[in-house]
Simulated assay, not measured.
Amino acid sequence: MEEKSVNKTNSNGYTFMFSVIMVVVVAAVLAFAAISLQPTQMENVRKEKMQNILSTVGITTDRDGAKELYDKYIVEEVAITEDGTVDESVDAFKVDLAKEIKKDVGEQVFPLYVAEVEGSRYYIVPLRGNGLWNAIFGYISLKDDINTVKGATFDHLGETPGLGAEITKQWFKEKFSDEKIFDSNGNLVGVSVVKGNIDVSDKDDNQVDAISGATITGDGVSDMISERLKRYLPYFEQQKGFKVATR
């Protein structure tokens, strides 16, 4: 009797059934863990988004302090349509730009965040475009003249470490501070990432120096800044005190 029991546990069928049961159990545990952790993960993503928005206007914080500072400094969240009007039915913060940019321009809404810091007003525009291997994205803030860059932050899904991935570094982001997005003729051109000996003191040339060996990523940054900002031009032109002679 004992021998039959030993043979049974050593059989291929027993091994197969044991493996199936273990796979089912492990899958169930992982699924439960994923569902349980989802609210926490979503909250972390939300707070990280707040951190990135705030960083463009010089406010740094950890995740725990992000909500409080966001509520303090971000005074408006608006979703803008193609003609520059505000769609009050849309929660701007919840707009998924990755999905939005796949729509026709006329169907898109464009989120905008307005900050007030120490008496100064800033307009923060979300960015998304294409790098060398995958999507690049970030935020750029404009001072109340709607021409001068206050700050910018960038991230990516798959750029090359040491090359295109350098767009996340502070030294690269700092280059955009005080650059202009309109040229001397009033054309909205954004800020271009350009190879060469760019004069870093010239903040009216609409250019910053490129990252060596990351031309395609740099071009992607240039394109997404100009493409996204142009979508907000109808709204900006309606703002009181907007003085840039646009074309």
Rank of each mutant, 00 (worst) to 15 (best):
K72R: 10
Y73F: 12
T81N: 13
F93S: 04
D64C: 01
R63A: 08
I80A: 06
K102Q: 14
K72V: 02
D91N: 12
V75Q: 04
E77Q: 10
D104P: 06
A66C: 08
K67W: 07
V90R: 06
I101G: 06
L112T: 05
A66L: 05
L69D: 02
Y70H: 04
V114R: 07
A92F: 10
D83L: 08
G65H: 04
V75M: 02
K72T: 10
D87V: 00
G106F: 13
Y113F: 15
Y73I: 02
E107N: 14
E118H: 12
V109M: 01
K103E: 05
Y73P: 03
I101R: 14
I74N: 04
V117G: 14
E107Q: 15
K99F: 11
E68M: 07
E118S: 15
D64F: 06
D87I: 04
L112D: 06
D62F: 06
V90I: 14
K94D: 12
E107F: 10
A79I: 02
E107R: 14
E118N: 15
A66I: 04
A98H: 11
F110Q: 01
K103P: 02
E107M: 14
K67R: 08
D104E: 15
S89D: 13
A98N: 13
V90E: 08
A92V: 09
G106H: 12
E76N: 11
E77W: 03
A92S: 09
K72I: 04
A98E: 14
D71N: 13
F110A: 01
A115N: 15
F110L: 02
V109D: 01
G65R: 00
G84E: 00
E77R: 08
T85S: 14
V109A: 01
D62N: 12
K102L: 14
D71Y: 06
V90C: 08
G119K: 12
T61I: 02
G119S: 12
K99R: 14
S89I: 09
D96G: 09
V95C: 12
I80C: 06
I80S: 04
L97V: 12
E82G: 09
V86Y: 05
E100Y: 03
A92M: 11
I74G: 04
K99M: 13
E68F: 05
A66K: 03
Y73V: 04
E77M: 06
Y73L: 00
E100H: 02
S89A: 12
A66G: 07
G84W: 00
D96F: 08
V109N: 02
D104Y: 13
G65S: 03
K94Y: 07
E77V: 01
K99L: 14
I74L: 06
G119F: 08
V95D: 09
I74M: 08
V95S: 12
